[in-house]
Simulated scan of single mutants.
Amino acid sequence: MTGYLGNEEATRETIDDDGFLHTGDIAVVDSEPFVYIVDRLKELIKYKGYQVPPAELEAVLLAHPVIADAAVIGVADEAGEAGEKVPKAFVVRLPGSELTEDAVMHFVAEQVAPHKKVRRVQFIDVIPKSTAGKILRKDLRASHSG
């Protein structure tokens, strides 16, 4: 890509001086080498100077035996000690489950670095997703209630 037609500012913001296109995607390369897109830069949660990828926390949550689905967003830190945001999990429990917020936070805390811990949990009926299956984080932010 040589740039955006008629939009030099957008071109400068997307293509750096060395010609690299910055998409905002975060990728990992395995030993094959296959490239996997694992998150978006704009979706990273900044917590006390650390970057916390929501997709990593979602993968941990989905490993729980009674969590049917989950999504994570950054929400304002009401205590004001964490910086910009704290990770909040939206969790869909399997029918009949009595999983608690504390149990969810404890489950994640046992598997991640301290700065990546989920600080808040809200149980919901369904995670909003696009027709392609992408989590609609903007919908979660709009409906975020405490």
Rank of each mutant, 00 (worst) to 15 (best):
M1K: 13
M1E: 13
T2Y: 15
G3A: 12
Y4C: 09
L5C: 11
G6Q: 08
N7H: 07
N7F: 13
E8W: 12
E9Q: 15
A10E: 14
A10L: 14
T11W: 10
T11E: 09
E13H: 14
D16C: 05
H22P: 04
T23H: 07
T23R: 06
T23A: 06
I26D: 02
I26W: 00
I26G: 00
V28N: 03
V29Q: 12
S31P: 03
S31D: 14
E32I: 04
P33A: 11
V35P: 02
V35I: 15
Y36K: 12
Y36V: 05
Y36W: 14
I37N: 10
D39T: 00
D39S: 09
R40P: 03
R40G: 00
L41M: 11
K46I: 04
K46R: 00
Y47C: 01
Y47V: 13
K48D: 03
K48I: 07
K48T: 01
G49L: 00
Y50W: 07
V52Y: 03
P53F: 00
A55Q: 01
L57T: 02
E58G: 02
A59D: 09
A59R: 04
L61N: 06
A63P: 00
H64Q: 12
V66A: 13
V66D: 15
I67S: 06
A68R: 09
D69F: 03
D69R: 02
A70S: 12
A70R: 02
I73V: 02
I73H: 01
G74M: 01
V75W: 04
V75L: 00
A76L: 10
D77W: 07
D77E: 02
E78I: 06
A79T: 15
G80T: 11
E81C: 07
E81R: 07
A82R: 04
G83S: 08
G83P: 01
E84K: 06
V86E: 01
P87D: 05
F90K: 05
F90C: 07
V92R: 02
R93D: 11
R93F: 05
L94R: 13
L94D: 14
G96Q: 12
S97T: 12
E98S: 12
T100S: 15
D102F: 11
M105L: 04
M105I: 11
H106L: 15
H106W: 06
H106E: 15
F107I: 13
F107N: 07
F107A: 06
A109Q: 12
A109P: 02
E110K: 15
V112N: 07
A113T: 05
A113W: 04
H115S: 08
H115T: 03
K117V: 13
K117R: 13
R119I: 08
V121C: 13
V121K: 03
Q122G: 10
F123T: 09
F123D: 10
F123V: 07
I124T: 13
D125R: 14
D125S: 15
A132K: 11
A132L: 10
A132S: 15
G133S: 13
G133H: 09
K134M: 08
K134T: 06
L136P: 07
L136R: 12
K138T: 09
K138E: 10
D139P: 01
H144W: 09
H144Y: 14
S145F: 08
S145W: 03
G146W: 04
